[in-house]
Design a protein around this nucleic acid. Structure first.
Lengths: 205, 205
DNA sequence: ACCTGAACACCGTTCAAGT
DNA sequence: ACCTGAACACCGTTCAAGT
């Protein structure tokens, strides 16, 4: 019996929660294994308060990550308005790579705290998944990628991004990976904007 | 001053080390976060002995993993003898997927203990890298994949395998990922066994 | 040279007492 | 209803004492 149904938090509780998230973002970005006690102290709350908000490390990290990733997801729609679908997709992937590197500490924290497998995928069911859907659908309609690619496929294909070292020269490595993925997505594409029927069918009408 | 240069271990020390690795494989495969103290106890050694052999959790996990992965790497050469290069590559990838799922607990342990990023990649510089090189080279020579793909590219491209949930129905997900990667690798391939010069050059001689 | 196991440090989690 | 901070449990790491 922690909390009613979706009753709004008391204002001080609300403030505490925000402070914790704020500090967690800064701290976890820097180093992925900052003790939760340190975060609580820096946020100016007791251990108990911390635990009232986040039952464990994973819950905190997921929440921080979710918020951060949301912003990136939002850019997908914008890119689609100013570019061709395939350039929008590729540009978004580039941003994703930049993001993954900038938030390397956070990504590490996520990997480290995610004991259960597939949690990363579960996170994908949120904002990222929606953004990816948008991009994939637009490309499928334009005939620039093969039909039937799911957001899940996409997320798995670019998983390598989360495995690169942010300190080294990740840029060329990321570019090569994303090029390969884009090529893989294009194979079997019906071709740029095909009207209705299949391309070069055996019997013409 | 732990140990001379590469002086052979005393026989009892050797036995202890093997016992630890044996227990660690069994225990970590089951659940990724078995306490090191539990492993030490089950192996019948004191905490100190454990630490003499493995300075931290990561060292242990890497060692266990390295050995396990070695066996898989060894199959690459065999596959190349009994199949066409591209089928050998694809079959090896399928085995890799099976392996990744069978050793899911171990893979989790690896992810969890790998604080430093790129450690996974570093592991790739060993046996896996050699196996992948073998497969890629054979395919490049046969013209079934584009030239210039490095083992690093490959490892990044299939990183999604380590992110799948072993309990769910990973089989179709893995197949889709590997298909996409294969397609990506094929794009720009010179074509099956081209003799010497580029295909369809502008000016014929 | 190697081993043991108690001792220490640290961090996550809980809970009695307070407002 | 929410907060605090001391107390507890657990695990990684070290080290004095042994063979």
């Amino acid at each position: 019996m922690q909390q009613k149904k979706d009753a709004p938090l008391r204002s001080d509780a609300q403030r505490n929660r925000e402070r914790i998230l704020e500090v967690a973002l800064a701290e976890l970005t820097r180093s992925s294994d900052t003790p939760l006690s340190a975060i609580a102290k820096k946020a100016g709350v007791g251990q108990g308060t911390f635990y009232r908000n986040f039952p464990n490390r994973e819950a905190l990290v997921l929440e921080v990550y979710r918020y951060e990733v949301q912003q990136l997801a939002d850019t997908a729609a914008q890119l689609l308005e100013t570019r061709t679908p395939d350039r929008a997709l590729r540009d978004w992937m580039d941003r994703l790579a930049q993001y993954a590197m900038a938030k390397a500490g956070l990504a590490e924290a996520l990997r480290a705290s995610t004991v259960t497998r597939g949690t990363l995928t579960k996170l994908g069911h949120g904002a990222v998944s929606a953004a990816v859907s948008l991009l994939l659908d637009a490309n499928e309609r334009a005939g620039t990628i093969r039909p039937g690619v799911t957001p899940d496929d996409f997320v798995l294909a670019i998983a390598g991004l989360w495995q690169m070292d942010a300190h080294g020269d990740w840029q060329p490595r990321a570019a090569r990976l994303l090029d390969l993925v884009m090529d893989g997505l294009r194979v079997g594409a019906p071709g740029p904007r095909p009207p209705a029927s299949g391309p070069a069918s055996i019997d013409a009408d």
